[in-house]
Design a protein around this nucleic acid. Structure first.
Length: 269
DNA sequence: CGAAACTCCTGAGCGC
DNA sequence: TGCGCTCAGGAGTTTC
């Protein structure tokens, strides 16, 4: 469900409730997420104040004095701040109990998400090898150099977190459309100039999605329960057979790297 | 090393 | 209305 704009929308939604707030405990109703929720999480975070709520790629980091809680929403996860008396519903697997009678509640039907603890976020294996943030530090030159000699499809390349952090299926498709690049094209055979276009396209599509509060396909909700409004702005994703917004030709759907790729065969080369 | 396949899980949508 | 099938926003792990 959540891609980078949705995760950032979530971060912005929960930050005002969490920053400076004391954690009083953890209630784990279902520890079987992608990896087991560590049994010592409660002892790590209880009575700690949240110093910052950060995002790296699609990971959320809740910083406390001696480490961070790592939260990943997987395909179907969402976070909300609720009053402690609100009963958990199905798939509400975990609460971070906060002072003032509130809870940060994780819901994740598919359980592809994760809640972990790390004493050193910068050195954690999930975070240490991530590429630059697409909206902070990514350059065309980085994409160009990282792609030399690579034969894999550019869309697959773009979705590799070690190349660029946090580009998921929706925004990979949308950015490649804006840049006019065929998603199947080998990454290593794309020019520096076209990677410059791609970097601009990534900035544009992610910024637009962020402004709209993310993309709601099935049931994404921001931390305050509001939906994202970017779905109506999607140019090719999920639009197989519909008209290309640029040339009115049909949008095609093919499989690239085990995932659906949507593109216009006329505008994207 | 790189590339591609495989894996986890539940729900929505579709054809019949 | 119900059943069975396919597909889904992620990404680490395994295999070749």
């Amino acid at each position: 469900m959540p891609e980078l704009p949705e995760v950032e929308t979530t971060r912005r939604g929960i930050e005002p409730w969490l920053r400076g707030c004391r954690i009083t405990g953890v209630e784990v109703r279902e520890p079987r997420l992608r990896w087991p929720v560590p049994s010592d999480l409660g002892s790590r975070v209880s009575n700690q104040r949240v110093r910052a709520v950060r995002r790296r790629a699609k990971y959320l980091l809740l910083d406390v004095a001696h480490g961070s809680v790592i939260v990943h929403l997987g395909m179907s996860g969402s976070l909300r701040v609720v009053d402690a008396h609100v009963p958990p519903e199905k798939f509400d697997h975990l609460d971070l109990c906060l002072e003032h009678g509130r809870r940060l509640r994780l819901r994740d039907p598919r359980r592809f998400g994760a809640v972990l603890w790390t004493a050193e976020p910068d050195r954690h294996p999930l975070l240490a090898h991530l590429g630059p943030e697409p909206l902070d530090g990514l350059t065309a030159d980085h994409l160009y150099k990282a792609s030399r000699g690579r034969t894999r499809a550019v869309k697959d390349f773009l979705m590799d977190g070690r190349v660029v952090a946090g580009i998921g299926n929706i925004y990979a498709n949308e950015a490649l459309f804006l840049a006019g690049i065929d998603p199947r094209r080998p990454a290593g055979r794309i020019s520096r100039a076209r990677y410059a276009d791609l970097r601009v396209a990534l900035t544009r599509v992610l910024t637009q999605a962020l402004t709209a509060g993310g993309t709601t396909l099935r049931d994404f909700r921001a931390a305050d329960g509001s939906p994202g409004y970017f779905k109506q702005s999607l140019r090719v994703y999920g639009r197989k057979g519909l008209r290309c917004p640029r040339c009115a030709g049909p949008v095609r759907q093919v499989v690239v790297g085990q995932r659906s790729a949507f593109f216009c065969g006329r505008c994207q080369r």
